[in-house]
Design a protein around this nucleic acid. Structure first.
Lengths: 111, 111
DNA sequence: TTTACATTCAACCAAAAGGTTGAATATATT
DNA sequence: AATATATTCAACCTTTTGGTTGAATGTAAA
């Protein structure tokens, strides 16, 4: 099982709309930091920080070539997050079934 | 489509381990705020705030009976988050296929 | 009607988040 | 060698977050 902090980082990174937009922006492959930043109205430095957050969450990879840093998407954290969410939903689905069943039994006992 | 802020709130709420633990704690049905707080080492007030965050994200529901507030889990936000993550993963799966294909073609052209 | 209990409100605090600007660093270009 | 470009680092600011403590509120129990 991955350290829980990994999930924290993934969800925190994804919770910000600017960062989600940055990820989408990488859909055509690698992009340099300046290219990533272009469509946004905030400063290049702010984008640089967002990229760092994504990088720490392993949602992007950085490939340095000379002065250029090529940023690209990594799918693993999203896979792991999907797994966690699915497991949690399954956990709840069974719990809710059980609760519903209990209510039904209780109901039958009171008839 | 749900307002994007909804997703922000869901992911932000889920990004905190204490709040994820609180959700799990609700698996046996409703619980009063004090009951929710019991296993945690932080103050009741801190838990009360966490519950408020979960409530704003609609991850829990509150039913007031006299002085007791009964907190229970709501599944919709997690369903919506799962949907978003799946869509995003699909989006990426097709993009990555395309990129890989491009590389293969390029490779063939250079043979 | 006092007293106890469940919960929130209010004020406060330290640390983190998200932004800014300006300087530093490293690499390209002329 | 000088200049331009790409990026980060550093300092700073404001707002938010996650926590605290103490008081207020509302309800239940003695």
């Amino acid at each position: 099982m991955a350290a829980p902090r990994t999930l924290d980082r993934t969800l925190t990174a994804l919770a910000d709309p600017t960062r989600r937009a940055i990820l989408r922006r990488l859909s055509s492959g690698e992009a340099r930091v300046t290219e990533v930043a272009r469509p946004f109205s905030i400063s290049l430095n702010a984008i640089s920080k967002h990229i760092l957050v994504l990088e720490r969450a392993k949602l992007v990879k950085r490939r340095k070539v000379g002065r250029d840093h090529f940023i690209s998407y990594r799918s693993e954290p999203l896979d792991a997050a999907a797994k966690w969410i699915d497991e949690t939903r399954n956990f709840w689905a069974s719990r809710l079934d059980t609760l519903e069943q209990l209510l039904r039994e209780e109901d039958a006992a009171n008839k």
